[in-house]
Design a protein around this nucleic acid. Structure first.
Length: 474
DNA sequence: ATGTCC
C-alpha cells in the first residue's frame, strides 16, 4: 500500500488530498509530535478508506488520538447524508457501542479522603463487578431488559438507582430515541441479561480521582468542579450485548451491500444506506445498545455514590455522561444549507459549543462537558465544546493505543507496574497482572499531548485535569 | 472492546 500523502494545513491540522476513489479529502488533527505515531500503523489508510463511503460529506476526519481499528480508525469521525445515499456502517461506531465516560463530583476534598481512601477502594472493589464475562450488579428478566433498551439511564433512576437530576446531566437526557428492543437478537439479549452494572475489561475502569488543575474557572464552577476536589470517573460500555449487535449487523450488511451496489475497499467497512431496511434496523439496535450502556453507567455511578455516602458521608453529583462510540442523526449546516447527517464518531466525542439547544440551561453558558479518560496511572481531562470546531462538533476521546495488548504484555511486568503505582500513592484494586501490563502507560500516547493538540486544533478547550487516587480495573 | 472461535 502506497504511503498516505499528508499535507500541513494550519495549526495542528493535516490534509490528505483526494485520491482515487475518495469522495472527500481526509483531515487529520494532530501535532507534529503525535504524527509519527499516527503514521506508524494503518490508521491513515483507514482514514482514506472511509473517504470512499457513499454519501460522505465534508471530510474523513481523524482526531489526535487516532489509531488502527476495525474498518474505521479509532479516533475517526465521518458524516454521511442519508438523503443523498449516505450509508451507516457498524465499523464507524465500533464493537463497544456507546462506550463512554461518566464523571461524578464528590462533595469532599482529597485531604479528607486520604485517611479513608483504602477503605473506600475496598468497598468499591467488593461491589463493582469487573473483568471479562463476569456478572453485573443486576440480573434482569427479559421484559426488564427490554425496558432498559428503550429507557436507558431513566430505568435505573425509576428503580431507585439515582436521582432525577442525573438524567439532566446525561447526553440526550439519558435516553437515546429510536431504540427498538425487537431489533436486538435473542443472542444479544441473552448476553445482556446479567451484565448491567459491570465494568468489563481492557481500558475500562472506575477511578477515584482528584481535580489537580483547573484551566477554566467559570466552566469548572458550572460543572461543579474545583481544585483538590474528589471525583469518580467510570469508563465502560455496552458489554457483550453491544458486541453481539455489532457482530450481527456487520454480517447482515456484508451480505446486503451487493444489493445496494455498494463497493468498499475493506470488507470491515460493511455498510448499507442509512435509510434502508438494514440501516434502520442497525440504528434501532445501536440505540438500544446505547441505552444499555447508559443504564450500565447509571447503576455503576449509583453504586459509587452509595459507597461515598457510607465511607465519607458526603453527597456525589453527576457532572456528565457521554459516549465516544456512536452514530447520531444530527442537523448541520453544509455549504449554507441545513442537512440531516448521520455522524459516525468512533473513539471520538461530541463536543457541543455554548448555547447549543441540546444543552441543559446551566451548561449552555459554558459548552458541553467532554470527558477524556486517561491511561491507568496518568491524567484524565474534562474539556468543553467550542464554537467552530472542525469536525461536526467532535474532539478526541482518550490517549489512543500505540502498542498492541500483546506487545505491552510482553514488555511490561504487571506486578512491577502495580508496585510503582502504589509507590506513587495510587491505590490499585482487583486487576490481573496481565491486564495491568496490557494497559500500561507506555502502550498509549501521551494524554497531555493529545489534549493540547485537540485544543490547538480548535476542537475543544481544557477545563480541568484530573489525576487518579484509586484505580479499579477489569 | 468481546463468553479474545459456533
Amino acid at each position: 500500500m502506497a504511503d498516505v500523502e499528508l499535507v500541513p494545513d494550519g495549526a495542528f491540522r493535516f490534509r490528505i488530498p483526494r485520491g482515487e476513489g475518495m469522495r472527500v479529502p481526509g483531515v487529520v488533527f494532530a501535532s507534529a509530535e503525535l504524527l509519527p505515531d499516527v503514521a506508524g500503523d494503518q490508521a491513515l489508510q483507514q482514514v482514506v478508506n472511509v473517504a470512499t463511503l457513499p454519501g460522505i460529506v465534508g471530510a474523513s476526519y481523524a482526531m489526535p488520538d487516532v489509531h488502527w481499528g476495525y474498518g474505521f480508525p479509532i479516533g475517526g469521525v465521518a458524516a454521511t447524508e442519508p438523503d443523498a445515499g449516505g450509508v451507516i456502517s457498524p465499523g464507524g461506531v465500533g464493537f463497544d457501542i456507546s462506550c463512554g465516560v461518566r464523571l461524578l463530583a464528590a462533595h469532599c476534598g482529597s485531604e479528607s479522603l486520604a485517611p479513608r481512601l483504602r477503605q473506600l477502594m475496598d468497598v468499591l472493589s467488593a461491589r463493582v463487578p469487573r473483568g471479562p464475562g463476569r456478572g453485573g450488579i443486576w440480573t434482569l428478566r427479559r421484559a426488564e431488559l427490554g425496558e432498559v433498551l428503550t429507557g436507558g439511564a431513566r430505568y435505573p433512576v425509576e428503580h431507585g438507582r439515582g436521582v432525577a437530576r442525573d438524567l439532566v446531566r446525561c447526553e440526550d437526557g439519558g435516553v437515546l430515541a429510536g431504540a427498538a428492543a425487537d431489533e436486538v437478537s435473542e443472542r444479544a439479549v441473552d448476553r445482556g441479561l446479567g451484565q448491567v452494572g459491570s465494568l468489563g475489561s481492557g481500558n475500562h475502569f472506575l477511578e477515584v480521582q482528584k481535580v489537580q488543575k483547573v484551566y477554566d474557572e467559570r466552566a469548572a464552577q458550572v460543572m461543579g468542579l474545583g481544585e483538590g476536589q474528589v471525583c469518580v470517573m467510570i469508563h465502560c460500555g455496552s458489554r457483550g450485548l453491544g458486541h453481539q449487535i455489532c457482530t450481527d449487523h456487520v454480517r447482515t450488511m456484508d451480505r446486503a451491500m451487493d444489493r445496494y451496489g455498494i463497493r468498499v475497499p475493506d470488507r470491515q467497512l460493511a455498510c448499507v444506506p442509512a435509510d434502508s431496511a438494514e440501516g434502520r434496523s442497525y440504528l434501532a439496535a445501536m440505540a438500544a445498545a446505547a441505552n444499555y450502556a447508559r443504564a450500565n453507567r447509571q447503576v455503576l455511578g449509583d453504586t459509587a455514590r452509595r459507597a461515598f455516602a457510607e465511607v465519607m458521608h458526603c453527597p456525589v453529583d453527576l457532572v456528565y455522561d457521554i459516549s465516544h462510540n456512536m452514530a447520531k442523526m444530527e442537523t448541520h449546516t453544509v455549504d449554507g444549507r441545513e442537512r440531516r447527517l448521520c455522524v459516525h464518531r468512533k473513539g471520538a466525542t461530541r463536543a457541543l459549543p455554548a448555547r447549543h439547544p441540546e444543552l441543559p440551561d446551566d451548561l449552555a453558558a459554558v459548552g458541553q462537558p467532554v470527558l477524556i479518560p486517561g491511561t491507568m496511572g496518568t491524567a484524565s481531562y474534562v474539556l468543553a465544546g467550542v464554537e467552530g470546531g472542525g469536525a461536526w462538533h467532535s474532539t478526541c476521546h482518550g490517549a489512543g493505543r500505540v502498542r498492541s495488548r500483546h506487545r505491552a504484555a510482553r514488555e511490561v511486568d504487571g506486578r512491577r507496574l502495580r508496585e510503582d503505582l502504589e509507590a506513587a500513592g495510587v491505590v490499585v484494586r482487583g486487576s490481573s497482572a496481565r491486564g495491568l501490563a496490557e494497559e500500561a502507560p507506555l502502550a498509549y500516547k501521551d494524554i497531555d499531548a493529545v489534549v493540547r493538540a485537540s485544543e490547538g486544533a480548535g476542537l475543544c478547550r481544557r477545563v480541568a485535569r484530573l489525576v487518579p487516587l484509586g484505580v479499579l480495573k477489569g
